Amino acid sequence: MSGNAATATSATHDEVSLVDMAVVFVRGWKVALFVFVGVLLASALVAWWLPTQYTYSSVYQMAEDMAKPQPKFVEEDEERERGLEASEGVLNKTRLYYQPQAIREMLKQQGLGSLPFNVTLTQPEDTLLLVLKSEVAPSQRNNVKVLHQRILQAVAAHQNKQYERVHGLFSKKVASLDESIEKLRGDDGANTGQVLVKYQEEQVKASTRLEGLRKGRIEQLASPSESATSLNPLVILVGGAMFGLLLAMTSVFVGHFIKQVSQRLKETA
């Protein structure tokens, strides 16, 4: 009986009620207040030091060939963007060559070891657009603008060469067909009419290709987003207050637990 009574007494002694927890928390209010204020001050410092950032975007419209013949496997009612070059090829060249080269040049000129901001390059689906984005503080906007411009100007320089090549090719073809048509108009041969019609059709096609050519161009350069992309200081403060309250309560009970364990060890020593 005495053993059972001792066990019951021990179990009762080990039970912790809500009242006991409240008493522990009230006794440790100084620790809780210290932890809560410390976390809140740390959150305020983070909110104050954290720079306001915006997303700066640049957009490049690739060179177009609007009269370019569609591949045979494409259905008539299917809409496709017709670039002078394949958009995937322009994207890969920019990502693998023009962008790294522009970054190296900028780092060398400014004596930097690494770029102080990120640069992401995308090509939206079903478009002939290249999009550059960088998330930085307003103080870095000029650097972002310079880098974006270097990258896109390198792309434009390459595309302009392709444009001049294709434009020159079809210009010569149109001029050559004009000359041939003029000669045929003075010829009375048996097949002259058929040949003349064929040349005129080719001339229309070549002229249409010339009219459909468009140079690549920078549509937008380092344009900022309408709202900041960094965390709102108020959100940081509210989050810090909630975390501070949780940590304060935990600290009180952990401290009480350590104190009780230490006392029990002394009693059983």
Results as ranks from 00 to 15, higher is better:
176 S>D: 15
131 V>R: 10
29 W>I: 15
249 M>H: 01
197 V>A: 15
266 K>R: 12
120 T>M: 11
122 T>C: 00
56 Y>F: 09
139 S>L: 07
108 K>E: 00
99 Q>I: 02
248 A>Y: 02
60 Y>G: 01
187 D>T: 05
225 S>Q: 03
226 E>A: 11
29 W>T: 14
250 T>W: 07
220 Q>N: 03
236 I>L: 10
170 F>Q: 07
179 E>A: 12
48 W>A: 09
62 M>E: 02
223 S>V: 03
211 E>Q: 15
31 V>K: 05
232 N>S: 13
217 R>P: 04
127 T>I: 03
95 R>F: 07
223 S>E: 08
126 D>H: 09
136 V>K: 03
262 S>T: 14
20 D>P: 13
101 Q>L: 14
24 V>A: 15
221 L>S: 00
43 S>G: 07
158 H>N: 13
169 L>N: 13
232 N>I: 00
1 M>S: 13
4 N>G: 13
230 S>V: 11
55 T>I: 08
98 Y>R: 03
24 V>G: 07
57 S>N: 05
38 G>N: 06
31 V>T: 12
22 A>L: 13
64 E>F: 01
46 V>A: 09
143 N>Q: 14
267 E>F: 03
264 R>I: 08
173 K>C: 03
253 F>R: 02
194 Q>Y: 06
259 K>S: 10
90 V>T: 10
139 S>Y: 06
42 A>N: 04
211 E>N: 13
103 I>E: 11
67 A>K: 02
91 L>R: 14
158 H>Y: 12
21 M>L: 15
42 A>K: 11
177 L>Q: 11
186 G>K: 13
41 L>Q: 04
42 A>M: 03
33 L>A: 15
50 L>Y: 11
100 P>V: 00
61 Q>P: 01
90 V>E: 05
235 V>F: 06
150 R>Y: 10
61 Q>Y: 08
62 M>H: 05
234 L>F: 04
16 V>I: 15
180 S>Y: 05
104 R>L: 11
240 G>W: 04
212 G>M: 04
219 E>W: 02
208 T>R: 08
91 L>V: 09
209 R>L: 12
62 M>W: 00
212 G>W: 07
68 K>T: 07
54 Y>R: 06
231 L>K: 01
231 L>Y: 02
19 V>P: 02
96 L>M: 12
79 E>K: 11
29 W>A: 15
23 V>C: 03
229 T>Q: 01
60 Y>V: 05
204 V>K: 12
26 V>P: 00
127 T>P: 01
14 D>E: 13
189 G>T: 06
204 V>S: 05
37 V>I: 10
139 S>I: 13
182 E>L: 10
99 Q>C: 02
152 L>C: 05
154 A>H: 02
236 I>R: 07
150 R>F: 12
171 S>Y: 10
214 R>P: 04
25 F>Y: 14
90 V>Q: 12
120 T>P: 02
19 V>H: 08
267 E>Y: 01
67 A>Y: 02
125 E>K: 09
40 L>Q: 07
268 T>A: 14
70 Q>A: 09
153 Q>F: 01
108 K>H: 04
